[in-house]
Structures are given as structure tokens and as C-alpha cells.
């Protein structure tokens, strides 16, 4: 039995799993196109204009511009996390798609890697649709903000990996609600998203930086959309890359443990 962090043998065939999901997604693209568009507008109107009319600006940045990177980062998190929890669980448990796939030259490692890549791709698609909306509102600084797209892939892969670890150990689809409410929701609120991290007590700031992946994603996103890149970026990036690698490897090994008997 391989160790949870042993390097899984993933082959190029993983792309075929990604391709399968992409085909299904592309067939219903009209439906899939809508949510990111609406979500961007909802956040901008409700929080940007609502709270923004009281807050006006944070650290010299207009409030709408302050939350714009958070909207992107939260979208990256939600789309990858949702895809690799509920989406993957349904394909694994209810549709038995993974069983069908591993009867072909695809290995279970290829299948999970393909699912993770697909989760990251969902994040990219989300951000690509949201960026023009934010640009129209004039709350992001182009062209640097375009770097949000590759960042969405990296951040998406991180959340896909974390999500897949939960999927690998969850007893049923209902228990997937726990990470949603205990992990994702608090993270959405306390990661320097709608108010700066520095408003939290110092101890909580450290906890957020150590344990909440979204904190780092929001920080980099904000540097890109505000064109305020500083060397701290490298620290945030290093944190994300580390966690992405660890979680994706663990996810594949845990899924193997769950599915190969």
C-alpha cells in the first residue's frame, strides 16, 4: 500500500478524463456561462454598492476595487471545491464513472488527476467570465489583472486537491456539507476578503495565514488587480504551491485507497 504522500504514477491519459468533463460542460455551456456573470454582479451590487456606500474606501482603495480580487478568489475556491466534492462524488459513487474508466488503459491515478485538472479548469473558466464584468465596472487594473487567469488555475488546483481529500474520506454525500460550512464559509469571510486581515486580532491573523488557503490567494489576487505587486507575493505563492502539491498527492493516494480493493 503506497504511503499517503508517495508520488503517484500519473500518465498523460489523465487528459482524457479532463476531456470527458469538458465535453459534458461544453454541451451545457449556456447554463454554465450564467452563474459567474450573475455572481460577479451580485457581489458588486450587494456588497460593493451596499456596504461600499458607507465604507467608501479601505487603505486608499475604493471599496468596490478592494473586494474585486476577493470576488475572483472566492469564485476560484468555490468552483474548484464544489466540482471536486459534489461533482466528483456523484461521478464516483452514483454514476460509477470511475469504475468504468479504470476498466480501460486509464489508471485510478489518471482518473483523479484528470478530475483535479478539471476542477482547476472550472476555476479558470469562472475567472475568465468574471474579469470583463469587473473591467466594465472599472474596479481592476488591466493588463496586470489578466494574471488572475493563470493564478486561477493554480488556486483552483489547490482547492481541487483539498476538496478531493474530503471526497476520498467522506462516508456519503451529506457529510460533504461539513467542509462546506466549517471550512469554506468561514474562509470566505475571514481571509482578508471583505475587510482587511489586519482588522483581526493578531493571533487570528496568524491562524488565517497559516491555515486558510484563501488568505494567500486573495492577497496575490489583490496585488494583480490593484497593480501593487510586492516581494511578499513570493511567500504567498510558495505557500500555495506547497499546499497544492501536498494536497493533490494526498488526494490521489487517498482515492486509490478508497477505490482499489
Amino acid at each position: 500500500m503506497p504511503h499517503i504522500l508517495s508520488i503517484p504514477p500519473v500518465s498523460r491519459r489523465a487528459i482524457k478524463v479532463w476531456h470527458r468533463n469538458m465535453t459534458v460542460f461544453a454541451r451545457t455551456w449556456q447554463v454554465n456561462f450564467f452563474p459567474p456573470l450573475v455572481e460577479a454582479l451580485l457581489y458588486l451590487f450587494a456588497i460593493g454598492m451596499g456596504i461600499g456606500s458607507y465604507v467608501k474606501e479601505i487603505a486608499g482603495i475604493p471599496y468596490m476595487a478592494f473586494i474585486a480580487p476577493a470576488i475572483l478568489a472566492i469564485a476560484v475556491m468555490n468552483s474548484a471545491f464544489f466540482e471536486c466534492t459534489y461533482g466528483s462524488f456523484v461521478r464516483m459513487y452514483y454514476q460509477k464513472s470511475f469504475d468504468a474508466m479504470i476498466a480501460t488503459p486509464l489508471s485510478i491515478e489518471d482518473v483523479i488527476a484528470g478530475e483535479l485538472l478539471w476542477g482547476a479548469t472550472r476555476s479558470v473558466i469562472y475567472v475568465v467570465i468574471m474579469l470583463p464584468v469587473l473591467a466594465v465596472f472599472g474596479v481592476i487594473s488591466l493588463p496586470l489583472a489578466l494574471l488572475a487567469i493563470p493564478l486561477a488555475f493554480l488556486g483552483g488546483l489547490m482547492f481541487a486537491g483539498i476538496a478531493m481529500c474530503f471526497t476520498a474520506v467522506t462516508p456519503g454525500i451529506d457529510t460533504l456539507n461539513y467542509p462546506m460550512f466549517l471550512f469554506i464559509t468561514p474562509m470566505t469571510l475571514f481571509s482578508g476578503t471583505f475587510f482587511p486581515l489586519t482588522l483581526l486580532p493578531v493571533a487570528l491573523q496568524y491562524i488565517a495565514l497559516a491555515l486558510l488557503p484563501l488568505t494567500h490567494l486573495v492577497a496575490i489576487m489583490r496585488m494583480f488587480t490593484q497593480a501593487t505587486v510586492s516581494p511578499v507575493l513570493l511567500l504567498h505563492l510558495a505557500w500555495i504551491i506547497m499546499v497544492t502539491i501536498l494536497c493533490c498527492i494526498a488526494a490521489i493516494n487517498l482515492m486509490r485507497r478508497r477505490l482499489i480493493v
Partner: peptide, 12 residues
């Protein structure tokens, strides 16, 4: 392989 369980892909 024809498995015991029907695992056709319902998305297609």
C-alpha cells in the same frame, strides 16, 4: 469488460 453493475455514463 462488461461489469456486473451498470456503469454507463448518464451524461452522454
Amino acid at each position: 469488460v462488461v461489469p456486473q453493475e451498470t456503469n454507463l455514463d448518464p451524461d452522454f
